[in-house]
């Protein structure tokens, strides 16, 4: 990250990195769903869907839970409940869409070929998820990450960053 636009904290850098990965996956998803007709799921297609399945899971469980547990209470405590309410509601909407999409991916991986009806439904849900998640990330980058330097001092930042799944997983 070369710009100083969103402020700099270790926690913010971790979240920003995850946002970049999610957005890159959404671009791939957008490309994957650009066809109106169902694709034939070859090795590459199946590998992409499997990766997407795990990435969505990581996003809506690890990433969202990390923010809700470690950051949102701090923001609410300093009076930024307006921002927190907005982000929490978006998490809820995205979780529901992600759950639908993951269920559909599971069906595709188990029962190829993909039917036209299922493909149309998948495209619609994917489009909703892309729109919703992109906007959510925009908002977090400009609101949440920009606000972190004000709610995390250096010690808090180090402690919160250490609680991030990236550091606790191993």
């Amino acid at each position: 990250m070369s710009s100083d636009f969103f402020g700099q904290t270790r926690t913010g850098s971790l979240l920003h990195g995850e946002h970049q990965s999610t957005l890159a996956a959404l671009v791939e998803l957008e490309t994957f769903t650009s066809r109106r007709t169902p694709p034939e799921l070859d090795e590459t297609g199946r590998a992409f869907l499997l990766r997407l399945y795990h990435l969505i899971e990581a996003d809506v469980t690890d990433h969202f839970t990390f923010e809700e547990t470690n950051l949102f209470p701090r923001l609410s405590a300093v009076g930024a409940s307006f921002m927190v309410e907005m982000l929490e509601a978006e998490h809820e909407d995205i979780r529901a869409l992600a759950q639908d999409l993951r269920a559909m991916i599971g069906t595709f991986l188990d029962d190829a070929p993909v039917s036209a009806d299922h493909w149309a439904q998948f495209r619609t849900t994917a489009r909703d998820l892309i729109d919703m998640e992109t906007f959510h990330i925009q908002k977090e980058e400009m609101g949440l990450l920009a606000a972190l330097p004000q709610v995390l001092n250096e010690a808090d930042d180090a402690a919160v960053a250490a609680a991030h799944p990236k550091h606790t997983a191993g």
Partner: peptide, 12 residues
């Protein structure tokens, strides 16, 4: 970097 800007009252 944003410094010294109040986070409270974003609705305002």
């Amino acid at each position: 970097m944003l410094t010294g800007v109040p986070l409270a009252g974003a609705e305002r």
